[in-house]
Design a protein around this nucleic acid. Structure first.
Lengths: 159, 159
DNA sequence: GCACATTTACTCGGATACTATATGTCCGAGTTCAAACGG
DNA sequence: CCGTTTGAACTCGGACATATAGTATCCGAGTAAATGTGC
């Protein structure tokens, strides 16, 4: 799994805690965690295409969350960065070579594929059950001073 | 996820249904599903290193299951092929750049990492709950003639 | 003093190189079997 | 006829190229704001 997923998740939490509805430039978000600025911009574009953040061009522009953090699940972010395809892709190798039975007969669903899809469904369900707001809330409870610090740093004048 | 996982899973099921305790050459197993013979041999070596199959050198050699199919889970096979590392790897980017708080203070576990690990645990649990014997049993029930066909083809003389 | 046109600076956005992983291939070490040889 | 020796064929095993996807970077299009100008 690409590391852009971790970047995007932290970014969404940062915006939820310190964004305050204002647009924050990609470069500033990247600098906050010392990430490669231009490449991180690419990940943000993926989030924008998925409708998780909205991009604002021009001066005072940047990115802000497109909807309340309660409505942004981990699953949404992972799909936006990694793509919608499942990790396991059944190539139907049972239909190839001497192992293939009668091509006209219906062999029914591939049991191996079913098992792998079931496991992946469990993974996706667990991701869909966690939202950005969950993390933000836990951070507020654990360290109440952190949100204000993020807010101030993200809004600071550009150097 | 690499496609070798699918190959290895089908291979284990084939051995469970038609291996009959005898060693089957890698080339024969590969030909059964029209797979690249030498590269597939590589995947079998990974299964052998993981203790899922045992390799027998020399003429009449090949691979056979190392233990009963009931004791071979999907999780075992996936770990053998893909490696034991989790898909999501937390790089602790929160500790880098201006976002990092006091380096001496303990920030507690990364909540994002915890959520991702929880989801991956659900995935692994689902995979660990399915065994090669489950698939083999379902195939026997659905198409009782298939096991004998596999058995005969795998044991056929080399051409 | 106010409205407007112009310039400027700043932002995102897609097109372009580079690197790591996964895929595919090759040849050598080891082992078993079979056949030939000698007793 | 039987035991031993020798050879050969077949197997796995790790080392060596290639293709694909992820990583990183650059420069151009667009926009809002600030500035300067005219009324």
């Amino acid at each position: 799994m690409g590391e852009g997923v971790e970047w995007a998740l932290h970014c969404c939490v940062d915006l939820a805690l310190g964004g305050a509805g204002r647009a924050v430039p990609a470069a500033r978000l990247a600098a906050y965690h010392d990430l490669p600025p231009v490449y991180f911009n690419k990940q943000l574009q993926a989030l924008a295409r998925a409708g998780i953040v909205v991009s604002v061009p021009g001066p005072r522009g940047g990115f802000r969350l497109a909807r309340p953090p309660e409505q942004i699940t981990f699953m949404d972010v992972v799909v936006a960065i990694e793509g919608p395809d499942p990790a396991f892709r059944c190539a139907e190798i049972r239909r190839r070579g001497p192992g293939a039975g009668d091509p006209a007969a219906d062999p029914g669903p591939c049991l191996i594929d079913e098992a792998m899809r079931g496991a992946e469904l469990a993974w996706r369900s667990a991701l869909a059950a966690r939202t950005v707001a969950d993390i933000a809330g836990a951070v507020r409870e654990r360290a109440p001073d952190v949100p204000e610090r993020i807010r101030g740093w993200l809004a600071a004048s550009r150097t």
